[in-house]
Design a protein around this nucleic acid. Structure first.
Lengths: 240, 240
DNA sequence: CGGACACTTCGGCGACGGCCGAACCGTGCC
DNA sequence: GGCACGGTTCGGCCGTCGCCGAAGTGTCCG
C-alpha cells in the first residue's frame, strides 16, 4: 500500500458523513424514539430529547437530508419517521453493538411499569419484539417454519403457514423475507424482515395484540392468546 | 410521551459515542483499509490516510478504546486489526448504505488495473467477495446448498457439501453460520458468516485462489478453477 | 554505544458544530 | 381580524475535536 492519498477517499468521506448523522446524542435520541416505526412531530421530539425546538429543527434537517428520515408536512406540523426499513436496521445494528450496561434502567416506579410492559411485548420498527417476539420466533423454529441454526430463513412449511392464514408476503421486493433482529433487552434474535412485518401487521389488524398507550409496548389480547397458542403452541406464560 | 428527559438517555449516549468513532474521515479510511482482515501498522495507516503519525496515533487510541480495533504490539510496531467479525460487519453495513456515486473511481491506469482485479475477486474481511464471491454464492443457491429467497441460510445439503470437503464449521459459536454481506461493487449479497469464512480459509489453504500483492484482491488458480467448476459448476468465464 | 526508526505525548491552533434566544412565518382557531 | 401555536431562520457563544510539529520514549541494529 504505497499509494499516498493525494485525493481523499470518497468512500471514507461518505462513511464519515453517514456516521456523523448518528454521532450526536440528540439525533441519536430521536432515532431511537423513531424506532417505534411511527411519525413524530418536531415538537414531540424536541421535548423528548430535551432541547429547544430551534435546535431540533436543525437536526431534523440534517437527518432528512441524509436520507435517514422521511418527512411529511401537515398544516403547521412537521411529521418525521424513519425513511425505510433499512434505516431502522442501521439504528438497530449500531444499538445492538453498544455496551449492554448502557441499556437497562428503571428510574421511577411508573417507568419500571412501562419498561416491564415493553419487555413483555413491543414493536421494533415494524415487527414484534420483546418476549413476545422471541416467543414467536422460538415457536417458528420449533415447528420447522424457520431455519435458525444454519442462518436465518423461512422454510417451505413457513411459507405455507403464512399462506394458510392469508397473510400476504411481498416476495419480490428488495427486502429480505426473513432477517434476524437482535433485541437489546433479551439479547436474542427475533424475526424481522418482510415476514416479520407482515406478521406484526396481521397481529395488530386482527387484534391478536393491541398497542398500549402511546409507546411501543403491545399487549396480547384474549383472542390473541388463544390464536397464538393454537397456531404456534405458545404457552400463555410466555405472553403475560 | 410526556416524560421530559431530565437525565439523558444512556442508549442515545452510547449510540452517539459509537457512531462518533466512525464519524471522522481519517478513522473511516482506516476502518475501510482494515476491512482486508489483516493487521496494519500505525505508520502504514498514517501514510494511507495522509495524516501525520502523531495524529493517527490518537485515532487508533480511540478506535481501540471503543472496541472496534484490536491491537498487538511487536517491538517498536503497533499492529491493529478489526476487533472481530461484528466490527467488520458494522463497517460493511454502513458502507453499503452510503450513496453509490461515492464508490467507483478508477484514477490512474495502475489503479484501474488494481480495481478490476479486485472486482474480479477479493476478500471482504474474512470471506470471498467481488465477482468470485457472487459466483460462489449463486452456485450455492442454484445447487440447493443455500436458501436465499426466504432469508439466508445453508440447507442440509449445504452442510453435507462442507462436510464432504472436510471443511469444519464452527456450528455453536455465537456467530451465524450464514449471513448475507452486501457488496458495494456488485450491489448483490454474497456468503459471509462462519461458513463464508471457513470457505475462504479453505480456498486459500488449498490454493484454489491466492492473494495478489498486498491488497485484498485474489486470483483464482488453475487448480482452483477446475475445483470450483467441478464442485459447483462455476464457469471459467466467471472467474477470469 | 550511537543512530535510525516507530510510535507517543503535549501544546497550540483553527474549524466545525451544537446550543440557545429572539425574531419571523405560516396555520388554525376563535 | 387577532391571537396562539408549531416550526424555522439567524446570530452569537462556547466546547469539542482534528491537525500539526516538536520533543520524548522505547526498540532494533550496526
Amino acid at each position: 500500500m504505497l499509494e499516498r492519498m493525494t485525493t481523499k477517499d470518497p468512500r471514507a468521506a461518505g462513511l464519515a458523513r453517514l456516521a456523523g448523522l448518528l454521532a450526536d446524542e440528540t439525533r441519536a435520541a430521536c432515532l431511537l424514539a423513531l424506532l417505534d416505526g411511527r411519525a413524530w412531530t418536531a415538537g414531540e421530539l424536541a421535548r423528548h430529547a430535551g432541547v429547544a425546538p430551534s435546535t431540533l429543527s436543525g437536526h431534523l434537517g440534517k437527518l432528512v437530508a441524509g436520507g435517514l428520515l422521511a418527512e411529511e408536512r401537515q398544516g403547521r406540523h412537521r411529521y418525521v419517521r424513519l425513511a425505510d426499513a433499512r434505516a431502522a436496521q442501521l439504528v438497530e445494528e449500531l444499538t445492538a453493538r453498544i455496551a449492554p450496561e448502557a441499556h437497562p434502567r428503571p428510574r421511577t416506579l411508573r417507568q419500571a411499569g412501562a419498561d416491564s410492559a415493553a419487555a413483555r411485548g413491543r414493536t421494533c420498527y415494524d415487527h414484534l419484539a420483546g418476549r413476545l417476539g422471541i416467543a414467536v420466533t422460538d415457536a417458528f423454529t420449533a415447528r420447522g417454519l424457520l431455519l435458525r441454526d444454519t442462518g436465518f430463513a423461512l422454510t417451505a412449511a413457513g411459507l405455507r403457514w403464512f399462506d394458510a392464514l392469508g397473510i400476504g408476503l411481498d416476495r419480490h421486493g428488495r427486502r429480505p423475507l426473513a432477517r434476524a433482529c437482535l433485541d437489546w433487552t433479551e439479547r436474542r434474535p427475533h424475526l424481522a424482515g418482510a415476514a416479520g412485518a407482515a406478521l406484526c401487521r396481521h397481529a395488530l389488524d386482527v387484534r391478536w395484540c393491541v398497542r398500549i398507550g402511546s409507546g411501543r409496548a403491545v399487549r396480547v389480547t384474549e383472542e390473541g392468546g388463544r390464536a397464538l397458542s393454537g397456531l404456534l403452541g405458545i404457552g400463555e406464560s410466555a405472553l403475560r
